[in-house]
Design a protein around this nucleic acid. Structure first.
Length: 435
DNA sequence: CGCATACGCGCC
DNA sequence: AAACGGCGCGTTTGCG
């Protein structure tokens, strides 16, 4: 089979931010890929992934359009009621969707002089005036309807399946993105999440099975920072957030309260993003000083992580780029965003792990003709793969898929996958191996 | 009038 | 005063 050189992939790998002008000539691009040590990730990951994604797009996800239509009508009705209430409370009609007009209303009617109307800023004033709560309710409903329910109904095909488009060359870190519709940002925790996700169903005779990499970014951090404490904790299957809590609060593991663990969890995830005290205090409710102290304690305890961050900022300053363990590369220009630089090798390797898993799985299952239609990849979501599997094949396929995902890439710590299954995407329950 | 931008918000 | 990384999208608003 003739496989022509993919210039789009090559251009993107050479400069995933798309800052420099694309080079057209394939021979020049090949030389550049070699020179920049990007040929491996091109040949082993991006090129084979093209066909995998095509297949995934073609399969699509089955949608319960009846459920969506019911949801749509319900939202419509409730929104009508809400709008009336809001106009009444405000004493006039205005465009609730306009932050500008909303600020004006808040200022004139509530004597609340704000510079932003986002939920974090205004939620605290819910008790002060009923209008605030009503507006937030309206926002939630309007968001669900206009961003999810209506577009999903529009984009579902005659066979009740929806086909997203994956953008393989759209992100700076190596992740995929999804559009028309974006199936990677469906509500999960909000009040309406289940109503939306219930509409994503398994084909008749199939079951949805999701495979989630467990704390993969922290496992990558442990690996790249070579932090022995983190590595040990993952090797021993310890509760990583509890461990962090114990260290930063300077108490024994048994004395860690749920509260302390929560802060530690925020911090653990934040570290990956280069989080500062301000962000931590905002996220956790701690004071700025407390947040600063916890970050200091964290770096005192996990000094290798601190060291890794410092080394990396050095490197990006001198070389002008960062790479991840898979060889993927991202250039930074002045002024360098060091937080992005810190996050890039972690988020990027996560993407490479998932991509390698997808390719591996595609290879294995396309070789087994009898399994081709029985195990279908429906959707990658950054650290998760959603499949639909024919009911009589689940017991056989799940362990194999789990193993393939867990062995897609070798880290300094075990790579673990959590499996859940169900008839729709809202009600997945942990997979239990049959005895 | 269409297009680009800002805002706000959903996910990992 | 401020900076927590990566996305896509609906709506409003300003610009040309």
């Amino acid at each position: 089979m003739k496989s022509s050189f993919n210039t789009q992939l090559a251009n993107w790998l050479l400069d995933p931010d798309g800052a420099s002008s694309p080079i057209e000539d394939a021979e020049v691009l090949k030389k550049k890929l070699l020179k920049e040590d990007l040929m491996k990730v091109y040949e082993e990951v991006e090129l084979p992934l093209v066909q995998v994604l095509k297949d995934v797009e073609a399969v699509g996800v089955s949608i319960d359009t009846k459920a969506l239509q019911t949801l749509s009508r319900g939202l419509e009705r409730q929104l009508t009621v809400l709008v009336k209430k809001i106009y009444k409370e405000a004493g006039e009609e205005f465009n609730i969707n306009s932050p500008k007009q909303l600020l004006d209303i808040f200022s004139r009617k509530l004597k609340l002089h704000l510079r932003s109307t986002n939920v974090d800023k205004i939620a605290q004033f819910k008790d002060k005036h009923p209008l605030v709560g009503l507006v937030l309710q309206y926002r939630e409903l309007a968001k669900v309807r206009s961003t999810y329910v209506e577009p999903l109904l529009t984009l579902t095909d005659k066979g009740s399946r929806i086909h997203t488009t994956f953008i393989q060359t759209g992100t700076a870190t190596g992740r995929l993105s999804s559009r028309n519709p974006n199936l990677q940002n469906l509500p999960k925790e909000s009040q309406w999440a289940d109503d939306v996700r219930r509409a994503f169903i398994a084909s008749p005779g199939y079951t949805l099975v999701s495979f989630d990499y467990s704390q993969v970014q922290l496992r990558i951090l442990a690996t790249v920072a070579r932090d022995s404490r983190l590595i040990e904790a993952f090797q021993n299957g310890e509760d990583i957030h509890k461990l962090t809590a114990s260290r930063i609060f300077n108490v024994s593991l048994e004395k860690v309260t749920p509260q302390m663990r929560r802060v530690a969890k925020t911090l653990n995830f934040g570290i990956v993003y280069g989080m500062g005290p301000r962000a931590l205090s905002r996220e956790s409710g701690l004071s700025f000083i407390e947040a600063q102290n916890f970050i200091d304690s964290y770096f005192l305890e996990f000094s290798k992580v601190k060291q890794w961050q410092e080394d990396l900022t050095q490197e990006v300053s001198s070389k002008g780029y960062v790479t991840n363990l898979a060889g993927r590369k991202r250039y930074f220009t002045e002024p360098i965003n060091f937080r992005a630089a810190i996050n890039t090798p972690i988020q990027g390797l996560e993407a490479d792990i998932l991509k390698r898993a997808m390719i591996q799985i595609h290879d294995v299952f396309s070789r087994r003709k009898e399994w081709q239609t029985k195990v279908r990849l429906l959707l990658p979501v950054h650290d998760e793969l959603l499949f639909e599997i024919q009911n009589d094949t689940i017991q056989e396929a799940v362990p194999l898929l789990t193993t393939l995902m867990e062995s897609a890439y070798t880290l300094a710590v075990p790579v673990k996958v959590d499996v859940k299954m169900g008839k729709n995407w809202a009600t997945l329950t942990p997979y239990k191996k049959k005895a």
